[in-house]
Amino acid sequence: NQESVVAAQLIPINTALTLVMMTTRVVSPTGIPAEDIPRLISMQVNQVVPMGTTLMPDMVKGYA
């Protein structure tokens, strides 16, 4: 089963992602794949992401 990127903390809107903000977990439905974490660093979220929420492609500016 593929791991997806999950918020390790509350991420406010327009925050640039850092490694410490993200963790990985096997979730359903699947979100952004864990191997894309290096690509996500410094990208901004376009909404508030509560802790434990799976990051979906449409939540990250410039990802999709």
Rank of each mutant, 00 (worst) to 15 (best):
N1V: 14
Q2D: 15
Q2M: 12
V5W: 02
V5C: 04
V6F: 03
V6K: 03
V6H: 03
A7N: 00
A7T: 13
I11N: 00
I11S: 00
P12S: 13
P12Y: 08
P12A: 10
I13W: 11
I13S: 05
I13L: 11
I13E: 14
N14P: 01
T15Q: 07
T15W: 04
T15C: 04
A16I: 05
A16C: 08
L17P: 02
L17E: 00
L17G: 00
L17C: 01
T18I: 04
T18E: 05
L19I: 05
L19V: 07
M22E: 00
T23M: 15
R25M: 15
R25I: 03
S28A: 13
S28Q: 15
S28Y: 09
P29G: 12
P29H: 08
T30C: 15
T30I: 10
I32F: 05
I32W: 02
P33N: 06
A34R: 07
E35H: 12
E35K: 07
E35T: 13
D36S: 14
D36N: 11
D36E: 07
I37Y: 05
I37N: 01
P38W: 10
R39S: 12
R39L: 09
L40G: 00
L40C: 06
L40W: 02
L40Y: 02
I41Y: 10
I41V: 11
M43K: 09
M43W: 05
M43C: 04
Q44C: 12
Q44W: 09
V45H: 00
V45D: 00
N46I: 08
Q47V: 05
Q47R: 13
V48K: 10
V48P: 13
V49C: 15
V49S: 01
P50Q: 14
P50D: 12
P50E: 09
M51Y: 09
M51H: 12
M51V: 05
G52L: 09
G52T: 06
T53F: 13
T54E: 02
L55N: 01
L55I: 13
M56P: 01
M56S: 07
P57S: 12
P57D: 07
P57E: 08
P57G: 13
D58R: 13
M59R: 02
V60F: 13
V60P: 00
K61R: 10
K61Y: 09
G62V: 06
G62R: 10
Y63N: 13
Y63V: 03
Y63Q: 03
A64I: 15
A64T: 15
